[in-house]
């Protein structure tokens, strides 16, 4: 799951897919080939904008067997923490960036008889990697992509290379018109479902599947994004002897890194558990998918990447 080390990558090509969507293609800055990426894997880019350092995780969309290039698709969002806006506005062909080795928290189940993929908007990205892998493997697959009317042609083009091997549907009628329960109810035994997209979609897939008797082990969701903002608070880093102000639109992890403290992290999306840090004082607003309900209630640990303080102050063993 974890991979140490950093890759130096050069931007080889930038393609504008839609007004807010760009595909970045990277090649190894020093020649050679990249390590084989896991299907559904992601990479973390270090972005330096003047004095500001941002670390953002992106799903790889290139097929795992593709080792000469890694590709990501980035959406520019209005409430961006800055990384995606920076990639859209300031990164150009030929630029060299630091990228953490790919890691994977969202993998295909090797024993599945059938793979059911559900993407919502930019949540298509890990699905593209899955489709590439399943095409190579010959796995049975059905893909449903939810999209706005405007972007449907973009997703249609991205999915076109897989149309011969997978059953692909693009839904533009919104969530209400998407018959999720009907889709989940008719799946044959041994199906695994994978969902990536807005939290509401991922929650709907999970709760609908469980209500239809799917075992939890066959429901997989990618846990990137989600609400990162909240009220500002102060984090006291006891071991470092620092006090960090966390602004309303920045994450605790970003604030800690900006203060010069290197916290251990991997997914930056509340999924992997790498950034778990002991809480000595203060109440936590848990927003991760890693800690169990009991652990969250105990309040002894916090995931720096997504969770925040519920009050004005947190004291951390960091």
């Amino acid at each position: 799951m974890t991979a140490a080390g950093t890759l130096s990558v050069r931007v080889r090509e930038i393609t504008e897919l839609a007004p807010t969507l760009k595909r970045f293609s990277f090649e190894p800055a020093h020649g050679g080939e990249f390590p084989t990426a896991p299907a559904g894997g992601h990479v973390m880019l270090t972005l330096r904008d003047g004095g500001r350092v941002m670390k953002n995780a992106y799903s790889l969309v290139s097929a795992p067997a593709q080792r000469t290039r890694y590709e990501i698709i980035v959406r520019k969002v209005a409430q961006s923490r800055g990384g995606s806006a920076f990639l859209h506005a300031k990164v150009a062909t030929g630029d060299v960036l630091d990228m953490a080795m790919p890691s994977c928290l969202f993998s295909l189940a090797s024993t599945a008889k059938k793979h059911l993929l559900i993407g919502g908007g930019i949540g298509i990205t890990p699905m593209l990697s899955f489709l590439g892998e399943l095409k190579a493997r010959g796995g049975r697959c059905e893909m449903h992509q939810l999209s706005s009317v405007d972007e449907a042609p973009v997703f249609d083009r991205l999915l076109a290379p897989f149309g011969d091997d997978a059953e692909i549907h693009i839904h533009t009628g919104g969530r209400a018109a998407f018959d999720l329960a009907g889709l989940l109810a008719r799946q044959p035994l041994g199906t695994h479902v994978y969902v990536c997209g807005p939290h509401a979609l991922m929650d709907a897939v999970t709760s609908t599947a469980l209500a239809l008797g799917w075992p939890a082990g066959k429901v997989h969701k990618e846990s990137f994004g989600g609400a990162t903002g909240g009220l500002p608070f102060k984090a006291v880093l006891k071991r470092s002897g620092l006090e960090v102000e966390v602004k309303e639109n920045e994450t605790l992890l970003d604030a800690i890194e900006a203060a010069g403290v290197a916290a251990s992290c991997l997914c930056r999306g509340g999924a992997c558990g790498q950034c778990a840090t002991a809480v000595e004082e203060g109440e936590v607003d848990h927003r991760d998918d890693f800690l169990s309900a009991e652990e969250k209630a105990a309040g002894k640990l916090i995931m720096l990447c997504v969770s925040r303080a519920r009050g004005p102050r947190l004291v951390l063993d960091l």
């Binding site: 989940l184 109810a185 044959p188 035994l189 199906t191 599947a209 008797g213 066959k218």
Partner: peptide, 10 residues
């Protein structure tokens, strides 16, 4: 039977 069953079976 299992060949024509759908998800949710125990």
């Amino acid at each position: 039977r299992l060949d024509r069953e759908t998800m949710g079976l125990r």
